[in-house]
Design a protein around this nucleic acid. Sequence first.
DNA 1: CTTGACCCTGTAGTTGCTACAGGGACCATA
DNA 2: TATGGTCCCTGTAGCAACTACAGGGTCAAG
Lengths: 134, 134
Amino acid sequence: MVLTIGEMGKATNTKIETIRYYERIGLLPRPARKTNNYRDYGQAELGRLSFIRRARDLGFSLDQVRALLGLSDDRSCDCAGIDRIAKEHLQEVDRKIADLQALRRELKGVIDSCDGGTVAQCRIIDALGPVRMD
Amino acid sequence: MVLTIGEMGKATNTKIETIRYYERIGLLPRPARKTNNYRDYGQAELGRLSFIRRARDLGFSLDQVRALLGLSDDRSCDCAGIDRIAKEHLQEVDRKIADLQALRRELKGVIDSCDGGTVAQCRIIDALGPVRMD
DNA sequence: CTTGACCCTGTAGTTGCTACAGGGACCATA
DNA sequence: TATGGTCCCTGTAGCAACTACAGGGTCAAG
């Protein structure tokens, strides 16, 4: 035995039911079974599950996660398609990084003004405010 | 009139139904109504909605968004509470930035190897792989 | 005065989990 | 060897966060 479903869950902070759900919808492969019918996972599945969970945590939908996993799974070297998908996701990733950095600045501001005991006007909403169209 | 619900939706890439949903659960205030009963929004609501949408896109739950908005709404200067919440979110934001930067590197790698036409092994999964516990 | 694009209030459906219910497997120990 | 605790199994039903649609009113343009 390498990994039980419970160990997978602990390692990736995922509920057992969620892992079975990912299997049902085809995001995780059906694992080998032990003689007692328990699921039997290896390091590859652990990596895949970790990727899914962290990508989900970053706000990607399951369909987007499927596409990202496809980049990894695809052995056909359909470079045009892969390139397009990767570039779309790269754009989105860059946007998210910028948003998070803006949010980070504002959180820092809140924390610093709290430390100083000042009644600073909180501008946290402005960090992720609407795009100005002058 | 300042903004209709449809204009709010376009400006923040949000479905009209979703805006009404946020109002129903109390994330957005009940806006003023015009004589014809149409919702009538101002810049403040637009900013708030933009914040909600972008925070959601970054993987924060509605409850977390509520807490972040609370940092902005709170005029009580309960600095201890605000400080704690802000610090928790700052930690999470930093983790997400790190994950996105790792994912970014791997996407760049995929794109570059596609450009070069090489059949590079795709390690995109490894970017968000499990935490090593040697 | 009608046609199309908006808005209104419902309610029901979808996605992505999450929580049981009901049952079997395994293992320590009394 | 029996009994308790902790795992695992397959369902199915519920919850969060939307999303779509039905049935209807508003309004500017032609």
